[in-house]
C-alpha cells in the first residue's frame, strides 16, 4: 500500500479514454498508478452507496415475493443471493477504490452545469414527444421535436433548422410507417 507516484492527478483527469490508445509493450499490469487525492477517493463512495443501497433495497423488496417454503429453491433464492453479492462487492469497493486509490481511467471528463441543463431539457422534450406518439401526426411531432432540440443545442443556422427536421421526419415516416407499418 505504499504510495509514491500520483503524477496523473487533476490535469490527467480527462486522460481516461485517450490514454489507453497508446500502445503498451504488453503485460505490465494496467493502472498501477492510482490517484490518491481525497476528492477522487470520496467520490468513489457514490458507487459504493449505489451498490450497497441497491442490495438493501432488493432485500427489502424480496419480502414481498410469495415464499412457498418447501425444499426446492424458491422464487426468493436467486434475488436474495444477488442482493448479498451486491452488498459484499460494495464493501470490497471501499477497500479497493476508496482506501487504496482511484484508477485514472475511472475518472470521467468533467460535467458542466450547462450540459446538465441541456440534458434535463432534452429529457423533458423527449418525454413530451413520447407522450404525443399516437396522438398527433408522427412526422409532425418528429419535425417539431427536431427543431426544438436544435434550438436547445444552440443551432441558429436557418438552413439546418429547416432541412434537418424535414429529412428526419420524412425518413422516419417512410421507414417506420410506410415500410415497416408501425402503428404510430
Amino acid at each position: 500500500m505504499s504510495s509514491t507516484d500520483t503524477s496523473g492527478s487533476t490535469t490527467g483527469s480527462t486522460a481516461g479514454s485517450s490514454a489507453g490508445t497508446a500502445e503498451r509493450p504488453g503485460d505490465h499490469p494496467e493502472d498501477l498508478v492510482l490517484l490518491k487525492n481525497l476528492p477522487y477517493r470520496l467520490r468513489e463512495l457514490i458507487p459504493v452507496a449505489a451498490s450497497v443501497g441497491l442490495g438493501i433495497t432488493i432485500l427489502v423488496l424480496v419480502g414481498g415475493i410469495t415464499d412457498r417454503g418447501g425444499d426446492a429453491l424458491g422464487p426468493r433464492f436467486w434475488p436474495t443471493m444477488l442482493a448479498w453479492a451486491l452488498i459484499g462487492l460494495g464493501v470490497l469497493l471501499v477497500f479497493t477504490n476508496v482506501l487504496r486509490g482511484v484508477r485514472p481511467s475511472d475518472i470521467p471528463e468533467d460535467m458542466n452545469w450547462s450540459g446538465i441543463g441541456r440534458m434535463v431539457a432534452t429529457f423533458a422534450v423527449l418525454i413530451g414527444y413520447l407522450l404525443l406518439f399516437n396522438v398527433l401526426q408522427f412526422w409532425l411531432i418528429t419535425m417539431v421535436v427536431t427543431v426544438v432540440l436544435l434550438l436547445l443545442y444552440g443551432i441558429r443556422n436557418w438552413k439546418v433548422l429547416v432541412f434537418l427536421p424535414i429529412i428526419i421526419g420524412a425518413l422516419l415516416h417512410l421507414l417506420f410507417i410506410v415500410l415497416l407499418k408501425v402503428p404510430l
Binding site: 406518439f133 432540440l149 443545442y153 439546418v160 422516419l172
Partner: peptide
C-alpha cells in the same frame, strides 16, 4: 456536428425502440 448526431440518435432510438 455532434449536436445533429445527438438528435438523430435519440429520435431514431426512440422510434426504433417503440417499433
Amino acid at each position: 456536428k455532434n449536436q445533429y448526431l445527438w438528435i438523430i440518435i435519440l429520435v431514431f432510438c426512440m422510434v426504433g425502440t417503440y417499433s
